[in-house]
Structures are given as structure tokens and as C-alpha cells.
């Protein structure tokens, strides 16, 4: 049931088609590199590898989907995320990493935010873990690249039109203006919609 504002339903933040909860519920677009391919490459690389690509190309979304598949296969998933504002989740991630056993897969999102020394020591911390899957903006010599993700206007427009059928043109424009960063492009679409429709 939709909350009613004033005299009837209106387009508020809770009804904006590009609101966060809907973005997070979008299906994963795998393209040519299916999850089976990625996991096969990961196993072949000694269960250590990275998804590489710039901001807003779906690395975190794919990592989350791969983590769900591995959890379904019986692996214990330990999710650690480093944000670009210097924070990390969980805060005691070092202790969590050290405690990881042979049935634990470490999903490390945003590991490029670590300093070089910590990134190197990460390999030492994680040697007992069953596997390691990471996202990075650039290739790393310490971790095999499983796939390189690039911005795709077609995929972005498909996602945007899934959220709002009339958004194809504005989605193309937003994607171009955001230089292929889907986060920023969705932000633009949200704010455009919030500005164009009175709440």
C-alpha cells in the first residue's frame, strides 16, 4: 500500500521511480560474462580474483550477486566494504579477516581505498581464507583480474526504462553527462524527476 500524502498520491521521494530502494532491487545485468564464467575463472585463479572497472559500472552489484551464489553453495561469506570517505564496514575488519577460515570467502568491496602497505598486508591476513573476491578500479599485480567492466549506455538505459518506461531519452542524456558513471547518472535522473514534478 502506498502512503497517501495530502489529498492523493503524489510524486514524493517515496514515489520517485529512481529512489534508492528500487535501484538496489534492479536485476543484475551480466552481459557476456556470466556468473558461471566468473566463478570458473575465480576457481582457476586459486579462488582469488578481482572485478575491475571504474565507478558506477556495477562491480558491487555483481560482487553481491556472486556472494549470494557462493553462499548458496555452502561458503561462509564475509563482506567488507571500504568507502571513499575513509570509513569501512565492519569497523573491526582486520580481526574479521584474520578469523576467516578455509570455508570463508572474503568479499572485499573497494579495496583500492586501502593504502599500499595495508593492501599488501591484506594478502598476508587472508592466506587462510577459502577464497577472496574483490572489486577494484584498476588491475592489481597481487590479484588476478576476473573481468573488466566498462560503462554501457545500453545497459543503463535498459535499467532506467525498467524503473520508468518514459526515461529512455533522459537516461541517455544523464549517462552521457555523468561520463558513464551509473551512480551519478541515476542521481541526475532522480533529481530531474524530483525537480520536474511538484511533490
Amino acid at each position: 500500500m502506498e502512503t497517501t500524502f495530502g489529498s492523493g498520491p503524489v510524486n514524493s521521494a517515496g514515489a520517485n521511480p529512481f529512489r534508492t530502494s528500487r535501484l538496489l532491487a534492479l536485476p543484475v545485468h551480466w552481459g557476456e560474462t556470466t556468473p558461471e564464467t566468473l566463478l570458473a575463472r575465480w576457481h582457476a585463479a586459486g579462488r582469488r580474483g578481482a572485478l575491475v572497472g571504474p565507478h558506477g559500472t556495477g562491480k558491487t552489484t555483481r560482487l553481491r550477486a556472486l556472494a549470494a551464489r557462493l553462499a548458496a553453495e555452502g561458503w561462509t561469506i564475509l563482506w567488507i566494504q571500504w568507502h571513499d570517505d575513509g570509513t569501512a564496514k565492519p569497523a573491526d575488519w582486520r580481526a574479521a579477516l584474520r578469523a576467516a577460515g578455509p570455508r570463508t570467502v572474503l568479499c572485499l568491496d573497494g579495496s583500492e581505498n586501502l593504502g599500499p602497505l595495508t593492501a599488501y598486508r591484506l594478502l598476508h591476513y587472508t592466506r587462510r581464507a577459502g577464497g577472496l573476491l574483490a572489486t577494484r578500479h584498476r588491475r592489481a599485480w597481487t590479484l588476478k583480474t576476473l573481468a573488466v567492466h566498462r560503462p554501457s549506455a545500453e545497459v543503463f538505459v535498459a535499467h532506467a526504462t525498467a524503473l520508468s518506461a518514459d526515461a529512455a531519452d533522459s537516461a541517455r542524456a544523464a549517462f552521457k553527462a555523468a561520463h558513464g558513471n551509473a551512480h551519478e547518472a541515476f542521481r541526475r535522473l532522480y533529481l530531474d524527476r524530483a525537480s520536474s514534478t511538484r511533490v
Binding site: 534508492t20 535501484l23 538496489l24 565507478h55 558506477g56 562491480k59 558491487t60 566494504q81 571500504w82 568507502h83 571513499d84 570517505d85 568491496d109 573497494g110 583500492e112 581505498n113 572489486t135 551512480h183 551519478e184 542521481r187 533529481l191
Partner: peptide, 10 residues
């Protein structure tokens, strides 16, 4: 909004 490693405030 936090998604992936990036954070933006509007």
C-alpha cells in the same frame, strides 16, 4: 547515498 565505495549527499 552510499553505493559501492562512493558517497554522495544531496
Amino acid at each position: 547515498y552510499r553505493q559501492g565505495t562512493s558517497t554522495a549527499t544531496d
